[in-house]
Simulated scan of single mutants.
Amino acid sequence: MFIRRENFKQYIKSYPVVSTLLALNILIFIVTSLPIIGEPLFNKGIGFNLLISEGEYWRLVTPMFLHASVIHLLFNMFSLYLFGPELEHIAGKARFLTVYMLSGLVGTIASYFLHEWNYMHVGASGAIFGILGAFGALVYYTKHIMPQLKQVIVPLIVIGVIMTFVQSNINATAHISGLITGFIVGLSYFHPKRIAAWKKRKNSHLK
């Protein structure tokens, strides 16, 4: 399920939302790493609670597309590259994007309300954890039908949560709130009645 065998062209064609998010994050990292203009742009987008409280509300969104280092970027983008395609395939483009953006946004909002005024953060981790949360909801509904999915997702979530609290300089608030948001949204998207209704509408259009 999470082993990618597509070539570059097939990957982009099959998973346009994931591909766009990957390209956007990488491009923004390159631009914010450039001399002269990079640092001011980075500082303009970082999640900084004090400046958010003063009306710079774009900082609730922009941190999701900024990364502090190459390692930080690679870790998040590899996770998106690996886990994003299957969720985009299962949920659809719009629903996948909703899970991703809403989980990341809730992560930054929670960071604003639960941390001190001088707290600063960047990274797509909240959105990535939202993807895992959505898979958690899928496991909840399919645990008796697709036990192999449970065997993969549950350990990933457990390891992710443990690493959140073991590693230093991690925005645990964004991770956990993103995970919960993805799970709640996934419960709505993957509810058996909703899936059945969606299949019924799809079949009626094909007649």
Rank of each mutant, 00 (worst) to 15 (best):
I159L: 15
L22T: 04
F65I: 04
S69C: 00
L74F: 13
I109N: 02
I145T: 13
L66G: 00
H89Y: 13
K202G: 15
K150G: 08
V18C: 08
A124H: 07
G123D: 03
L60Y: 12
Y15M: 03
G92W: 11
F75E: 11
Q10P: 02
R194Y: 08
S19G: 05
I153V: 15
I184Q: 02
L87R: 09
K207A: 13
G104Q: 06
H72Y: 12
V70H: 05
A172Q: 15
N76K: 10
S111A: 13
L24I: 12
M163K: 12
V154W: 09
N118C: 00
Y119S: 06
A197S: 12
S168P: 01
Y11E: 07
S177E: 07
V31Q: 01
P40A: 05
A196Y: 08
G92E: 02
G107P: 00
G136M: 06
R59W: 08
V185Y: 14
L27A: 15
Y81P: 01
P63H: 06
F8G: 00
F183W: 12
I195H: 04
I145M: 09
V152N: 00
L102Q: 01
F48L: 12
H144F: 10
I153N: 04
K207T: 12
L82A: 14
V154L: 15
V154I: 15
P35C: 04
H205A: 13
S79W: 13
L187I: 09
I37L: 11
L41T: 00
E86M: 15
G186R: 02
E54W: 10
M101P: 00
Q10N: 09
H72A: 09
F183Y: 15
L74V: 11
H89D: 14
L105V: 05
F8C: 06
R201Y: 11
L138C: 00
T142C: 07
S177I: 10
V158H: 03
M120E: 14
S53A: 14
I131M: 06
L41D: 00
K202F: 14
G107N: 03
G136R: 02
V17H: 03
G186F: 08
Y57F: 15
R194W: 08
K9C: 02
A174M: 10
L187D: 07
H205C: 11
A134C: 15
L105E: 01
K93R: 14
F165G: 02
K9Q: 10
I26P: 00
F2D: 01
A110C: 13
A68D: 10
S111E: 02
R194I: 12
G104F: 09
E39D: 11
G160L: 12
F135G: 01
I162R: 03
G107V: 02
V18Y: 04
N43D: 10
P85M: 08
L114P: 01
H175L: 10
A68N: 11
L132Q: 03
F135N: 05
S33L: 02
A91D: 01
F129K: 02
K202H: 13
S204H: 12
H72Q: 05
L206K: 15
Q148N: 11
I71A: 13
A124N: 09
K199Q: 13
G55S: 08
G182Q: 07
Y189L: 15
G126M: 07
V18F: 06
H67A: 08
Y140W: 14
I90Y: 11
V61Q: 05
Y141I: 05
N76M: 14
S103G: 05
Y119F: 15
R95L: 08
T108C: 05
G182I: 04
